[in-house]
Amino acid sequence: MNLPKIPLADWIEWLETWLETHFEPFFKLIRLLVGETVNGLETALNWFPALVLILLFTLVAWFIGKWRMALFTLIGLLIIENLGLWSQTMQTLALVLTSAFISVLIGVPMGILCARHSSVQKIVTPVLDFMQTMPAFVYLLPAVTFFSLGVVPGVISSIIFAIPPTIRLTSLGIRQVPEELVEAADAFGSTPYQKLIKLQLPIAMPTIMAGINQTIMLSLSMVVIASMIGAQGVGVYVYRAVTQGNTGVGFEAGLAIVILAIILDRLTQQIIRKSKTT
């Protein structure tokens, strides 16, 4: 058999150029919006003296969780400060929160749409599979082409990688609302919107929150890769340590990411637990 190779690579490159030339203003707008969000958040986080912010986070942990969580937050953040990684960690936090925020903004309505219409679900599911399994480096390149180097392509690729759980679990949560409750809501004459707001979203909330938790965790796992295309933060230290064979520095930066991950995870878990009990 000697069939000619499908020129898939050529097609994709043609598509990339075509998008770049025809959608430039659109990409510019996104770059502006996302860039400003991350920068604004980063500036705000770094505006506080580190110790004040550490106390603030500890208080939040205290209110949402128990004293153990507050203690962990306090010690963990003090270690980061002590290692001299505070401002980089805040840059990373700004990137993670921005991509998580945008993921929720797009993911939850998307999930609702999937839950409502099986046809949308059928189209979206394979796309999500594709997004989650395609190696991240592959879409880093076009991200750089469209949004140039810096934090914005980092956020965009984080979103691509991290948004699927929010969409999937929002859809699942709504579909799992017991049939008889939906029927009751219908029997009393709810509009579809009333049904969504008063019944489906509140009942699906723990599941949706579990999706958001996953999204935050996944976008944290993207910070090192994002640093390769110029996103600032602790990821840069890890990347540099890898290229320079510096195990000690790599471990320090890695530890900062782990601490941040644990705090974010426990906080969101706690919120899930609370939304379940009410």
Partner: peptide, 19 residues
Amino acid sequence: LRTFRRKNVGMVFQKFALF
């Protein structure tokens, strides 16, 4: 139909179906 359900018919379910 919504108005009919809101004003004219109430319903009680086997498994209660309370929110």
